[in-house]
């Protein structure tokens, strides 16, 4: 009896703990929606999402966030183009090719990159990379889409690399041994056997890395340039969604249309992140490598 009671207590204790974080999530979501939805009394959802002018304080104001959405999407895609090869190749090298001693040093070093505060990366982009880009390519400004993508790539490489490396390392030894035994050389085994076997883990890493890039605020606020226009080239300044929220929230009059619009942008951002996480979750469950046949 006593033991059962104790067990019941422990069970409800953990239930409450687990429920608390879900409750916090739901509460935040509730307030986000509550503060964001009133904007749609002023403009329709279509006008909001597909409008091309963002002039929240003009009179009459324009609340079109298409330039902001496209900025976020382009910045994220470009950073993925830079970060995915870098992250995945590093992971393959660390898991399959590097000597154990080198791996012991190199892996924590890559992970250390993740612990750099984003404001430091932003500062680096602003003070070092921007003038360099401007001089080298004779651009109008060094604070642009490309610079932001580069800085975000630095931030998503550790995520992509760490998760991919774990996935590659957990490919059963037998698969690799079988491949080598059949006469495949090392490169063939890596690209034909090991990478396909760990593709779900690698994809999860890539998507989580991209999720990190799209939600990142400080870096894009500092180096993306902040022009709310649809970019015409890789070197145009842009204004991604998180940068808009961070820059404007402090000065937006409480409960004004602008204030609601910023929360509505937050909702859109939430939808994007939810989408990324769901895809990552789906892939990691769907294409899981299930065991290996051995004698």
């Amino acid at each position: 009896m006593k033991r059962q009671k104790k067990e019941g207590l422990i069970r409800s204790f953990f239930f409450i703990i687990a429920f608390m974080s879900i409750a916090v999530l739901l509460l935040i979501l509730f307030f986000l929606v509550k503060a964001g939805v009133p904007i749609f009394e002023k403009v329709s959802v279509g006008e909001f999402v597909f409008g091309t002018y963002w002039y929240p304080t003009a009179s009459p104001p324009d609340f079109g966030i298409l330039p902001l959405i496209l900025a976020s999407v382009f910045v994220t895609l470009c950073s993925a183009v830079l970060a995915v090869p870098l992250g995945v190749m590093t992971a393959i090298y660390l898991a399959e090719i590097a000597s154990p001693r080198l791996k012991e040093i190199a892996k924590p070093a890559v992970e250390l990159l993740a612990s750099l505060p984003s404001v430091v990366i932003g500062f680096f982009g602003m003070v070092v990379v921007a003038p360099f880009l401007q001089e080298t390519f004779d651009l109008a400004t060094g604070l642009n889409l490309f610079n932001a993508s580069l800085m975000l790539a630095f931030m998503s490489v550790p995520t992509i690399c760490t998760i991919s490396e774990d996935a590659i390392s957990s490919v059963p030894r037998e698969l690799k041994e079988a491949s080598l035994a059949l006469g495949a050389n090392r490169i063939e085994s890596i690209f034909r056997v090991i990478v396909p076997a760990s593709i779900s883990g690698i994809s999860t890493g890539v998507i989580l890395g991209m999720a990190r890039a799209i939600g990142e605020t400080m870096v894009v606020l500092m180096v993306a340039g902040g022009a709310a226009m649809i970019p015409g080239s890789l070197f145009d300044p842009v204004r991604p969604m998180p940068a808009s929220i961070a820059a404007e929230m402090a000065e937006a009059p409480f409960q004004s249309a602008h204030y609601h619009a910023l929360f509505a942008i937050g909702m859109i951002l939430f939808v994007f992140n939810l989408l990324f996480n769901s895809i990552a979750d789906y892939i990691s469950h769907k294409h899981r490598q299930v065991g290996a046949a051995t004698l």
Binding site: A58, P67, L221, A228, M229, D236, A247
Partner: peptide, 11 residues
């Protein structure tokens, strides 16, 4: 009037 969209907005 309005600042044109190509202006870089700083915080």
């Amino acid at each position: 009037g309005r600042v044109f969209p190509g202006a870089m907005l700083q915080a």
